[in-house]
Design a protein around this nucleic acid. Structure first.
Length: 597
RNA sequence: CGGGAUGUAGCGCAGCUUGGUAGCGCACUUCGUUCGGGACGAAGGGGCCGCAGGUUCGAAUCCUGUCAUCCCGACCA
């Protein structure tokens, strides 16, 4: 390809819409353009990168025995109703699925994911255990009405994803495919030149049992990852469990009511009474908005120095109630008033807050769901609210409270905690960009969509399933986040839009031009992906652009042609050397064939 | 949705406080000089100043509304 014909438009100034470096470089390098918030055009250079990535993904998926398909993007609401996800995915304000009505008033959605479609297809097509296991995958555009699109391709509303779904006759088979996917994924990321960390993850809205995320380590990442120093434990903070630092011992065993005026926060309480936050049990009063317009008040107890992990909380409640949680928020005076209830002594509430305070609520359930985190339940003596304004109780214990039930893990693990795998190992935090996620779904969708196969015994049984995603367009940007320098992008050869760029330094020097053309022909004929910068620009401009767009190898045909030499420049190392033409050609081919992976 | 900010040429910005009918750099076109790290000179083209109302003799500028975009939080590949 000739640069003069490439519709290459590079920008010297960074568009103000871009915050993080990868987004800036992709815009400046002429890789992407924003069409609307969270919606991007992939320009020719970007499309080549995306094709490179998808080809690697395709090869590795095929190698696992998965079958490529292409499923519809428009999906009928019925399937989502059947799986029970329609309401949650289309809920006003929270729902993430674009949906619409067609001219017959049928409800449709633009697929944010394909569990429903693929599960129902699997049910139609797979009749016997003899056909199993089967894995289907597709590489396709997904649509999600993200609450807040961000950072270019990192969180966009239309994006390219590889998603795969596996069907099994038993859990053993699911686990084996899951493991193969793990290996396949690691191959994919390695071949793309990415430094990726696999971490334990929450399975979120997709549901299911075990799940693992693949994180590109980068400061711009949206996720916080906790890793033990020895590297044996790593998990997304959403999911991570840990041992908190031990509490400062609290010796007072004598129960006593103390006056605590204006001490409604842990900080003010501790300051005024010479306490450590770890000696206090704090109580959060929350409200869970559950599907079908049900509202459940929650009373959450945590050790004073610990924070609530809302995702864990949501999962705990979902499991307890076996219903979808739409939202969890704090109860405030305003909500109490709207419910026709009296105010609560916020800041002074204890774990034993009486249920009768909920009597007469209009929509809410009239009993608290009480949950106590391990960090709080393991305290012997502690301080807690008295359920009266401006008074706390010291020397309390769970026996005295008679309220120690539903002990769960709802604590936010954080850096400085100890690893659950080794109590001597501290957890450290890094940021990561999630580029892949694999799940063992189990029977969640095959049960809800009633899709079965005939097992060995001749009876019907729901499938065991797994699902496996890679954000292709996000991965491309994550690669830039990981591979760039002050001058621009430094693509790994395997996913670079072109492998080598020939820069003709002086377009008016016929000898240089002719040599450039010859090299271009020669390298192209050898199967290399070559860009020839034949623009009538000054050499400096061409060098700047070549650096910016990040082509891994550069040949400069310039002043050294006098001595029969050309310059070979490595984008990543910025090292260069002069070589006779023949030698340069040989070296370039060797390096590229070597770097293709 | 809550909090913050911004909309002026393809990109980056000034002008707005104190109303007088739009400017700078980059990019683009032509010519000349230059020619290995984003050259210089000259001459050009390109704007309903986000949109709609209002105030005014007159609005990019003041007022009201609205739309869009970005940042912080909930969502996620």
């Amino acid at each position: 390809m000739r640069v003069s014909r490439l519709m290459l438009v590079t920008l010297r100034d960074t568009p103000s819409e871009a915050e993080i470096i990868s987004h800036q470089l992709l815009l400046r390098g002429g890789y992407i353009r924003r069409v609307a918030s969270g919606i991007y055009a992939y320009l020719p250079l970007m499309w080549r990168v995306l094709r490179k990535i998808t080809e690697i993904v395709r090869e590795e998926m095929d190698a696992t025995g998965a079958l490529e398909t292409l499923l519809p993007q428009l999906q009928p609401s019925e399937l989502w109703q059947d799986s029970g996800r329609w309401q949650g995915y289309t809920a006003a304000g929270e729902g993430i699925m674009f949906h619409l009505k067609d001219r017959q008033n049928r409800e449709l959605a633009l697929g944010p994911t394909h569990e429903e479609v693929v599960t129902s297809l699997g049910g139609d097509l797979i009749r016997s255990y003899r056909q199993l296991p089967i894995t289907l995958y597709q590489i396709q555009t997904k649509f999600r009405d993200e609450i807040r699109p961000r950072f270019g391709l990192m969180r966009s509303r239309e994006f390219i994803m590889k998603d795969a779904y596996s069907f099994h006759s038993d859990e053993q088979s699911l686990k084996s495919t899951y493991k193969n996917m793990d290996i396949g994924y690691k191959n994919i990321f390695a071949r793309c030149g990415l430094d990726v960390l696999a971490v334990d993850a929450d399975s979120g809205a997709i549901g299911g049992a075990a799940s693992q995320e693949f994180m590109v380590k980068a400061n711009a990442g949206e996720d916080l990852i906790l890793t033990s120093q020895d590297g044996k434990y790593s998990a997304n903070q959403e999911k991570a469990t840990s041992f908190p630092k031990p509490p400062i011992p609290y010796e007072i065993k004598q129960e006593k009511l103390i006056e605590t005026p204006n001490q409604g926060s842990i900080e003010s309480l501790c300051n005024a009474n010479n306490l450590d936050p770890s000696q206090v049990v704090k109580v959060l009063v929350l409200l869970a908005n559950i599907e079908n317009d049900e509202y459940q008040p929650l009373l959450i107890s945590l050790r004073g120095d610990q924070d609530l992990n809302e995702i864990k909380l949501k999962n705990v409640i979902t499991n307890k109630l076996r219903k979808q949680i739409l939202e969890i928020k704090a109860i405030t005076q305003k909500e109490l008033k709207e419910e026709g209830l009296n105010d609560l002594p916020f800041g002074f509430i204890g774990p034993d807050l009486n249920n009768h305070l909920l009597k007469g609520a209009k929509k809410w359930n009239q009993e608290f769901l009480r949950l106590v985190d391990h960090s709080a339940s393991s305290l012997n003596n502690f301080v807690c609210g008295s359920n009266n304004f401006e008074k706390h109780r010291i020397g309390m214990s769970w026996e005295k409270l008679e309220a120690k039930n539903n002990i769960v893990d709802i604590r936010m693990a954080k850096a400085g905690d100890f690893s659950i795998k080794n109590k001597n190992q501290l957890l450290e935090e890094t940021r990561g960009i999630e580029v892949g996620h694999i799940f063992q779904l189990g029977k969640k969708y095959s049960l809800s969509l009633e899709t079965n196969f005939t097992n060995k015994e001749g009876s019907l049984e729901p499938f065991w399933m797994g699902c496996y995603g890679i954000g292709i367009s996000r991965l491309a940007q994550a690669a830039v986040e990981q591979h760039h320098d002050d001058e621009g992008i430094c693509w790994p050869i395997s996913i670079a839009p072109f492998e080598v760029i020939i820069v003709v330094a002086n377009q008016k020097d016929k000898r240089q031009v002719d040599t450039g053309e010859e090299l271009y022909k020669e390298l192209t004929s050898k199967g290399l992906e070559v860009l020839l910068d034949d623009r009538p620009e000054r050499a400096g401009v061409k060098f700047k652009d070549a650096d910016l767009i990040g082509i891994p190898l550069r040949i400069v045909v310039g002043r050294d042609l006098e001595s029969g030499q050309i310059e070979l420049f490595h984008r990543i190392t910025r090292s260069s050397k002069l070589l006779p033409i023949d030698e340069a050609l040989r070296e370039i081919q060797a390096e590229i064939f070597n770097g293709r992976s």
